[in-house]
């Protein structure tokens, strides 16, 4: 708790959970896709589904996808800006046993890359990503976050952490999840220091790694 948790954040209204948090969720989903999105199907749950129009949740989510920060005054016009830039957006509402302010993104990027991201807005503008491409995850985007998809076999994680150690990067939190033993696994690693691009390139060269991606704190 610091003074800027009280006098802050600087944000676009009207609601820290339904607008500012939504923009951050969108931004995180866009970063996880890792390229310019051309299509987004966004499913809203709970209170997001009920009150999104009045809170501009839809605009904020799309603004985030386009990389706007939570205090960007263009959020208000995000839907028309998306249309102009060739980003097609579809909104759906659904019911699920999730946190009441949950959104799920199915994204396609310019090169055809796809990503499925689910996350919740927890209040005060803070968020939690809860699922990526069907893997259960949990991170808040407050640290440098490394996301790897790799083969579930001995040594792969050690190789990754070794690269971080060489770069003097300290690991704050770490979590591995897999759908099935010996198949693919997803790891979330939150670090205190930024991770250099060359470290990511080195990881992508490792055997057993399908993809490694870094998300900057948002």
């Amino acid at each position: 708790m610091g003074v800027f948790d009280i006098i802050g954040p600087v944000m676009i209204g009207p609601s820290s959970s339904h607008t500012a948090g939504a923009a951050r969720l969108g931004k995180m989903a866009g970063t996880i896709l890792g390229e310019v999105p051309v299509k987004a199907v966004i499913t809203l749950y709970g209170s997001f589904a009920q009150t999104y129009k009045g809170h501009g949740t839809d605009k904020a989510l799309v603004a985030g996808l386009m990389g706007f920060a939570a205090d960007d005054e263009r959020i208000k016009d995000a839907l028309s800006l998306a249309e102009k830039s060739g980003l097609e957006v579809v909104f759906k509402s659904s019911q699920g046993d999730y946190h009441p302010n949950t959104a799920e993104f199915e994204l396609s990027g310019v090169s055809g890359k796809k990503a499925r991201v689910r996350g919740a807005s927890l209040g005060g503008g803070s968020i939690r990503i809860t699922s990526i491409d069907g893997y259960e995850v949990e991170f808040a985007g407050e640290y440098y976050t490394l996301i790897t998809i790799h083969q579930d076999k001995p040594g792969v994680i050690a190789n990754i952490t070794q690269i971080l150690a060489q770069q003097n990067v300290n690991i704050a939190f770490m979590r591995v999840s897999r759908k099935q033993k010996g198949a693919q696994a997803l790891m979330i690693l939150e670090t205190d220091q930024p991770i250099a691009l060359r470290a990511i390139n080195a990881m992508n060269e490792l055997s057993g790694i399908q993809s490694a991606l870094v998300v900057q704190p948002i």
Partner: peptide, 21 residues
């Protein structure tokens, strides 16, 4: 009102109460 029409404000301590301080 700026907050309600999606303008830029400082939450203080929240967005709903951003006009008081």
């Amino acid at each position: 009102e700026v907050n309600a029409r999606m303008g830029k404000i400082v939450a203080c301590p929240t967005a709903g109460s951003c006009g008081i301080v």
